[in-house]
Design a protein around this nucleic acid. Structure first.
Lengths: 134, 134
DNA sequence: TTCGATATGTGATGTTATTACATTAGTCAA
DNA sequence: TTGACTAATGTAATAACATCACATATCGAA
């Protein structure tokens, strides 16, 4: 995988759908948006999503069964750190950030417990600044 | 709510199913286990689970759509901290721990971003010590 | 060109969760 | 006791999320 991944037709369609969205989308919402482009079955979406996840171009938000384009596409700065997501339950906006202290702290626990981690999910649910003051 | 919650019949049945399990259970697995006790519909399980979550007696693992009994039932020591879960993808065992540094670090991000958090999910997927050496 | 790997198309099915509505059981005040 | 209110429960139907199984197509390398 190079820094700019060459995407197939379906992968591009799915990625663009996520990139132009202003928040996370469910797989079925993506499917509906792409029916005009010939999409007919969930699997077409899920297969593309799997690849895009592999490539690190999108993230899956486990707590809401939805997907979002990575907001730091060009910086692999936090590619070895864990990414945390703050998800607003009012407006759906997602903020993505990484924190070296949290990353280190998790690693401490895993290494001292002999746990070999593959993927870590950190999702903060709540109300964002704009929605909180509104 | 007192320190010992009075449970209804269905809540007790669901809680006991989780308490005697050696790992997380899906709602439908619980349903199947309780058919002998008169359970017939998913909602009977989900309603009990909702209450048990309210009472803090169980946790929901977002990344695997399953539920687990709280492993620190008598200590409310980490009731104000975030709880992290290490989930073994081989054997399904879940380890629960809380970390004040992570908790503080998340709070720092939320407060400096005006984000009012309600619930935070931290789930580490991987392979536990026993399965890793086996 | 033939082979193998990757990508795609499609229907059916499996899994997880909620909606809507009816009924039952407990509580408490008049 | 009655009535009224609230919480809990029962049930069917449906919605939402995800995968399986199998067929076809596309593309690059030997």
């Amino acid at each position: 995988m190079t820094s700019t991944q060459e995407l197939t037709k379906n992968q591009s369609l799915v990625f663009n759908a996520l990139a132009r969205a202003d928040g996370p989308l469910s797989a079925y919402t993506i499917l509906d948006q792409l029916r005009g482009d010939g999409f007919r079955a969930p699997l077409q979406v899920y297969r593309a999503l799997d690849k895009l996840l592999d490539y690190g171009m999108i993230h899956r938000l486990e707590s809401i069964n939805a997907f979002v384009a990575c907001s730091h596409p060009h910086s692999h700065s936090h590619s070895h750190g864990m990414i945390a997501f703050a998800i607003c339950e009012k407006c759906g906006q997602v903020s993505e950030f990484s924190d070296d202290v949290i990353t280190a702290r998790v690693r401490e626990w895993t290494s001292s417990n002999g746990f070999k981690q593959s993927k870590t999910t950190i999702e903060i649910r709540g109300v964002c600044a704009s929605c909180g003051t509104a």
